Amino acid sequence: MTIAQVAVVGAGYMGGGIAQVLAMAGFQVTIADADATTTRHHLERLRREAVEFEEQGLFDPGSADLVAANLHAADSLEAAVADADYIEEAVLEVPEVKGPVLAAIEAAARPHAVIGSNTSTLPIGGLAANLQHAGRFLGVHFSNPAPFIPGVELIAHAGTDEAAVVAAEDLVARTGKLSARVSDRAGFVLNRLQYVLLKEAASLVEEGVASAEDVDIVVRTTFGYRLPFFGPFAIADMAGLDIYAAGFRTLAEHYGERLDPPAVLTELVAEGHYGVKQDGGFVIPAGDSAPLVAYRNRAYARLGQLLRELGPAPL
């Protein structure tokens, strides 16, 4: 399945950013919003933003020209999707809004066009009920702000055709972003993790453990400092899974079963897998850790240089 023509339905902040990304990747992109006037307004904004971002050094040279050449406005949803090989739905995160829009997209689209939803939490299987032929439908979840965040979640529901997933993977790869296949559970991976972190952060404030400002300092200057380079499994592998297991036991003693050691961690430790230092772990095999440590140190030092260059965020 070859994708050349793309439509984005919902051209606001999120959908517009996705449209810019696809246009800069060389796709012919047509946007549609509530009405022709609104769509035209968004088109002008997105072209103007592309020029500003390029002037600021945020977009590569030539990006604004690509957006100007490849991004177009349609007078209606039907006109936008009629010739599209792929359609990205990016309207309000409300089932009662997304449902009719998805049905309208399917009715006007080519029979084999792939339809993706940018929902961030709604189960894809539930949204698929709005379609007559849901095999071509999946979640393709870009993150905000779409032009600058490199990860995309791909969420197939039980009836999604593999060809649709492969086509979406190819589309994302052509933008230079990285995709991850995740299962169809509410919140997927990104927002289950993000919301749990915010929930625990709020609990710390409510319990008087720290202020919101101090919680933010701890997060961004400690474990959050590692996250641009390593995910939680790699971080645990480097620290030592035996250490994590012991830490979970301490937390469970004080906070109850919600912080019991995860079974997958307990099983690895019981089998002698402690991470980098012994027999490998979740994602990092055992072996010479010197190259990994050297990369880690260089990465953290360079991040520190960047933060000093940028200065504090204007909160």
Results as ranks from 00 to 15, higher is better:
residue 74 A to L: 08
residue 93 E to H: 10
residue 141 H to M: 12
residue 114 V to N: 07
residue 103 A to F: 02
residue 104 A to I: 02
residue 132 Q to G: 15
residue 69 A to W: 01
residue 101 V to S: 04
residue 101 V to P: 01
residue 92 L to E: 14
residue 95 P to Q: 13
residue 134 A to L: 04
residue 97 V to A: 14
residue 76 S to E: 01
residue 109 A to K: 04
residue 73 A to E: 03
residue 64 A to M: 08
residue 115 I to F: 01
residue 138 L to T: 11
residue 128 A to P: 11
residue 92 L to T: 15
residue 95 P to M: 13
residue 66 L to Q: 15
residue 96 E to Y: 02
residue 64 A to T: 08
residue 136 R to E: 04
residue 133 H to C: 09
residue 124 I to L: 09
residue 99 G to M: 11
residue 136 R to I: 05
residue 126 G to K: 05
residue 63 S to E: 08
residue 135 G to N: 10
residue 84 A to I: 10
residue 87 I to F: 02
residue 65 D to N: 14
residue 104 A to N: 04
residue 117 S to M: 09
residue 129 A to H: 10
residue 98 K to D: 07
residue 84 A to W: 09
residue 75 D to M: 06
residue 113 A to M: 00
residue 91 V to H: 01
residue 102 L to R: 09
residue 95 P to W: 03
residue 109 A to V: 01
residue 143 S to F: 15
residue 120 S to M: 06
residue 132 Q to R: 15
residue 141 H to W: 07
residue 81 V to L: 05
residue 106 E to V: 06
residue 84 A to D: 14
residue 102 L to W: 04
residue 101 V to L: 02
residue 129 A to Q: 15
residue 68 A to Q: 14
residue 136 R to C: 10
residue 91 V to M: 06
residue 74 A to M: 11
residue 109 A to D: 03
residue 129 A to N: 09
residue 127 L to C: 00
residue 137 F to V: 09
residue 139 G to I: 10
residue 124 I to S: 06
residue 92 L to F: 15
residue 135 G to V: 12
residue 101 V to Q: 01
residue 98 K to H: 06
residue 143 S to V: 06
residue 74 A to V: 09
residue 91 V to G: 05
residue 76 S to G: 08
residue 92 L to I: 14
residue 99 G to Q: 12
residue 76 S to A: 12
residue 84 A to H: 11
residue 131 L to E: 12
residue 77 L to V: 02
residue 140 V to W: 00
residue 97 V to C: 09
residue 98 K to E: 01
residue 98 K to V: 02
residue 90 A to E: 03
residue 118 N to G: 12
residue 120 S to T: 05
residue 136 R to W: 07
residue 82 A to L: 06
residue 124 I to Y: 06
residue 97 V to D: 11
residue 104 A to E: 09
residue 140 V to T: 15
residue 79 A to W: 08
residue 93 E to V: 13
residue 139 G to E: 05
residue 83 D to F: 07
residue 84 A to K: 11
residue 95 P to D: 07
residue 94 V to R: 15
residue 96 E to G: 11
residue 70 N to C: 06
residue 92 L to H: 13
residue 96 E to R: 14
residue 95 P to L: 12
residue 84 A to L: 11
residue 105 I to C: 07
residue 102 L to K: 09
residue 83 D to A: 15
residue 92 L to K: 13
residue 108 A to E: 07
residue 133 H to L: 09
residue 97 V to L: 10
residue 142 F to S: 06
residue 111 P to C: 10
residue 135 G to M: 13
residue 123 P to E: 01
residue 113 A to Y: 00
residue 77 L to I: 07
residue 136 R to A: 05
residue 142 F to P: 04
residue 130 N to D: 12
residue 113 A to T: 00
residue 84 A to F: 10
residue 92 L to Q: 14
residue 89 E to A: 11
residue 84 A to C: 12
residue 110 R to I: 04
residue 141 H to N: 13
